[in-house]
């Protein structure tokens, strides 16, 4: 991520190289009164490349394909960095930092916490309901072993995909699981959350 200030379409601007979707992308900030002017100038300049506006649903779908978690969707108030795969780098920090104590609590370092993973339906046309529960079966007893946090049909992959928090999920890659929602059971596979462009080549353009 980097930032530059300058003039864009004759208007002073800040341009950030950031990506919420995994695609090569830039965020442009200009004074509000000049927003429409800059929008029209960008659309005109980009016409020869097929520039097109896209909405929040497409934005969220693309970030899900890339496994970019959405704070508040893939996390909640009890999520700690190790749940989402960031535990290693943070725990290796030698100096103290705000949150360190919380990360090292007995509950936070349990092996059976809910891990952030990808969930791929066996039937590629089935889009799992967000909020549906992963079933952990112990004999005749069925318990919730996590849940689906985001779910889409990916036109790029021609397959439905989902993200979720699954108990000990990172140690169960490739495992077939059952997912329950409102009387219906779906079959799916636990996967890495990055479904598309795992090397991140698209970020470079």
């Amino acid at each position: 991520m980097s930032c530059a200030t300058g003039t864009l379409a004759g208007v002073r601007a800040r341009v950030f190289r950031v990506s919420f979707t995994g695609e090569l992308s830039f965020e442009v900030s200009v004074p509000a009164h000049y927003g429409e002017h800059v929008w029209l100038a960008l659309m005109e300049a980009g016409a020869e490349y097929g520039i097109a506006p896209y909405g929040i649903e497409a934005n969220l779908l693309m970030r899900a394909e890339k496994g970019y978690l959405h704070v508040g969707a893939e996390t909640d108030g009890v999520t700690v960095p190790q749940d989402i795969g960031y535990g290693g780098p943070v725990q290796k920090k030698k100096s103290d930092f705000i949150g360190r104590r919380s990360m090292l609590r007995a509950d936070a370092i349990r092996d059976d916490r809910l891990h952030y993973v990808g969930i791929k339906p066996v039937d590629k046309t089935q889009v799992l309901p967000t909020g549906a529960h992963v079933i952990d079966e112990e004999g005749d007893v069925r318990k919730s072993g996590g849940y689906v946090t985001s779910s889409y049909f990916s036109p790029t992959l021609d397959h439905s995909i989902a993200l979720g928090r699954v108990r000990e999920g990172r140690t169960r890659m490739g495992e077939r699981i059952k997912i329950f929602d409102n009387g219906t059971i779906f079959e799916a596979e636990i996967t890495d959350p990055v479904f598309y462009d795992p090397e991140g080549e698209r970020l470079a353009g």
Partner: peptide, 10 residues
């Protein structure tokens, strides 16, 4: 500022 700059009022 460019000549064609228009202000988008609320």
């Amino acid at each position: 500022m460019p000549d064609n700059l228009t202000i988008a009022s609320p």
